[in-house]
């Protein structure tokens, strides 16, 4: 059991001493996954609202596609993005392979279905009359949609946090397209998950554990934030 106690103690020391390497890796993780979720929100929110609020031919197929997207294996997404941006791929001219941008692209593909699916069911559960009521008080079509977003904001925040949780903890896609590169004291594309793989493989359990603790702390913070939001004074859509 010594291996645990020792590495945890060392991990805490690394985090507490603001170790430059550890914080560079953490910073890149936040940056990549944060950007991916923001872009995912820009795509997923309108898409989810459209799928949740309108009825049209072929909607069922799109909904099924989005739900399938929830189970996409990150490593396969990584492979797909890698082939797209590799030198021989259709987007090869952009020279994106092994850059943070490539990692963001892969994670956008992973995060968007989460945000779309949750937004879709959230706005779909808000009575149609809420929108009609807003229109009936003089809202434009857009303003009425904003009322729906506002009524569903809690679920949409859940969607963002769920999407963030999914991408910050995935290793397959960022490993494929980012390459886990950290050279000459400069971190290029190493994030928390790939760093854990790397450090553990090299026998640096205490460093790996430090990254693991940070990931856990982030997951905990997300869940904590979520539950606070849900029980907060301005919670769900209750009054009918």
């Amino acid at each position: 059991m010594e291996i645990f106690t020792q590495s945890i103690a060392e991990a805490i020391r690394l985090v507490a001493s603001f170790d430059r390497y550890v914080f560079q890796v953490m910073g890149l993780s936040l940056k990549v996954s944060g950007s991916a979720v923001l872009i995912g929100l820009v795509i997923g929110l309108p898409l989810g609202m459209w799928l949740g609020l309108s009825r049209f031919r072929g909607r069922g197929i799109l909904v099924a596609l989005v739900n399938t997207g929830l189970g996409l294996p990150p490593v396969v997404v990584g492979l797909f993005v890698m082939m797209m941006i590799s030198r021989k791929g259709p987007l090869g001219f952009l020279s994106l392979l092994y850059t943070p941008s490539a990692m963001v692209i892969a994670q956008v593909i992973l995060a968007t279905p989460y945000i779309t699916a949750i937004t879709m069911s959230a706005v779909g559960s808000i009575p149609r009359e809420v929108r009609l009521q807003a229109v009936g008080l003089g809202a434009s079509r857009f303003q009425a949609l904003m009322v729906v977003v506002k009524e569903a904001r809690l679920s949409i925040m859940t969607a963002v946090i769920a999407g963030f949780g999914a991408v910050i903890s995935e290793v397959g896609a960022v490993m494929m397209v980012g390459g886990n590169i950290s050279a000459g004291g400069e971190n290029k594309t190493r994030v928390l998950t790939t760093a854990i793989v790397q450090e553990a493989r090299m026998g640096h359990f205490e460093t790996a554990m430090a990254f693991g603790l940070i990931l856990l702390a982030m997951a905990f913070a997300a869940v904590f934030l979520l539950s606070r939001l849900q029980e907060g004074p301005r919670g769900g859509w209750v009054k009918s």
């Binding site: 009359e129 009609l132 009521q133 807003a134 003089g138 009524e151 301005r234 009054k239 009918s240």
Partner: peptide, 28 residues
């Protein structure tokens, strides 16, 4: 439309306080 107003069978109040609901149309 802005010269009219509607009340439905169910109140469909928006989340928040009563006054922010009542001021909604005026804010628009």
């Amino acid at each position: 439309r802005r010269r009219t107003a509607t009340v439905f069978q169910r109140p469909f109040l928006f989340q928040g306080k009563v006054h922010s609901n009542v001021s909604y149309g005026l804010r628009l």
